[in-house]
Nucleic acid binder design. Structure first.
Lengths: 236, 236
DNA sequence: ATAAATAGTGTGGTTTAGACACAATTGTTC
DNA sequence: GAACAATTGTGTCTAAACCACACTATTTAT
């Protein structure tokens, strides 16, 4: 074997924090493990890196396995590498987080993997250092969503402004003023009215909007704040 | 051996992007390699992860080896894992970036490793995917420094407001208004006047300030924008 | 018809950002 | 030592953004 004359090669895993939004609260897709180690406990969805596989491809594969989805927002978060983080064997974990539309995923794949959507607020303790991973992912989501309009990735193709507002309120755990929020969002011209209305509402039906994909791509490469009192938000 | 019944264990390296500031321009500490592979070319400072070593400890060790410094700002950036990124053998690289005070480091250690401070603007092409790493680090520095006052990590203990302004101008490659910048910085109450003056100046000597460490720690866990026209800044 | 709930739009005061002007300090030059 | 060049420190004004708040419109249930 030609290679570096250096000792240790290490097992590399990937774990995915999968965020969803059900209209009211932020949710995580978690696995009730029916395999060792730590069978019976909750964990993130994970897997091992293959020899011939780029990191991002591996994360995409793992996400696809669990959700049946392939074109989601998926971003590398951080790599966890404490020596004893995995009791079985030293394992590095490269952590990705993903934003998915909770309605789109494959229910069968979820059942196969014993996965459920869990409210972030009522998340059970997870194995190993997975709690830390979720903390970091939430921090990153808040960080990122304040500057880039990635919140849309959590919504269906057509959505109302009040739905979008609820999403931001869930992400940051704040109450926003309806009128100011609407004005600010509309000013971005990121939303295209469809003329259709939200049939699910019991009272006055809000208009359904679609994302202006062209504008969206521009925004992703720039800055934009979507929150009032931005400087006072705590990231903790 | 007890462990996961899984095939591939992979060599794990760490690479460090080390930022400095000489009063005028942002600089990188780079290595002119006198060892294989790619001897004679420029690269980041790197090393391999030891069996018994946490990731962050390894990054700290590598940074110490090169600079003789130990308590610098050091943050994990991203992990690079393309299959063929290293031609010798598949190697994952966990990348850290660090902000150091350019005056503090150990000149002997630099010489030993054939390292030099290079203006970011005149950076030579680096080996492997190191150019991408630097790009990502600069993006992260801009991202982070806009929200957190980490710029101070690049300055000496005592510094003037105009020096601080030049630093921000170098990071974002913009010109800022002296008066508005000063007002904004002073409003944060992050600076403590020392009464001393910058002797190096030829004309009116600016007051030297120290960082208010207590306030600084608070700011690190919150948000704060230090730039005007923030929403128009491009991250590219 | 009326009530209850939510959506959509408007208005005005306060704060902040950013353009700009002037006075003060220091070393150099003549 | 007076004039000057360079830079620092502080003040002011205007326009824009933020945000608190009020009113009207729509829909279903009773």
């Amino acid at each position: 074997m030609t290679g570096y004359q250096h000792s240790s090669r290490i097992l590399v895993a990937l774990d995915c924090i999968i965020f969803g939004f059900d209209g009211e609260a932020l949710k995580l897709l978690l696995i009730k493990r029916n395999f060792e180690p730590e069978s019976g406990k909750w964990s993130l969805m994970g897997g091992f890196l293959n020899d011939d596989e780029d990191l991002h491809d591996a994360a995409t594969r793992i996400l696809f396995t669990l959700t049946g989805l392939q074109n989601n927002y998926l971003e590398q978060l951080q790599t966890f590498g404490a020596v004893n983080r995995d009791p079985v064997e030293r394992t590095l974990s490269v952590v990705y987080y993903s934003l998915v539309n909770i309605n789109d995923q494959d229910p069968l794949a979820l059942k196969t993997h014993n996965a459920s959507w869990i409210d972030l607020d009522s998340k059970p303790a997870l194995i190993f250092d997975h709690d830390q991973m979720v903390d970091a992912a939430l921090r990153q989501l808040r960080y990122k969503a304040a500057l880039y309009p990635i919140g849309f990735e959590l919504l269906p193709e057509k959505f109302t402004v009040p739905q979008l507002q609820k999403l931001y309120e869930a992400i940051y755990n704040v109450k926003l003023d309806r009128r100011n929020f609407s004005r600010k969002i509309m000013a971005t011209e990121l939303l295209l009215g469809t003329g259709e209305k939200d049939a699910s509402s019991v009272t006055k039906k809000a208009q359904l909007f679609k994302l202006n994909q062209e504008k969206y791509q521009n925004y992703l490469s720039g800055y934009q704040s979507f929150l009032p009192e931005f400087t006072e938000l705590s990231l903790s």
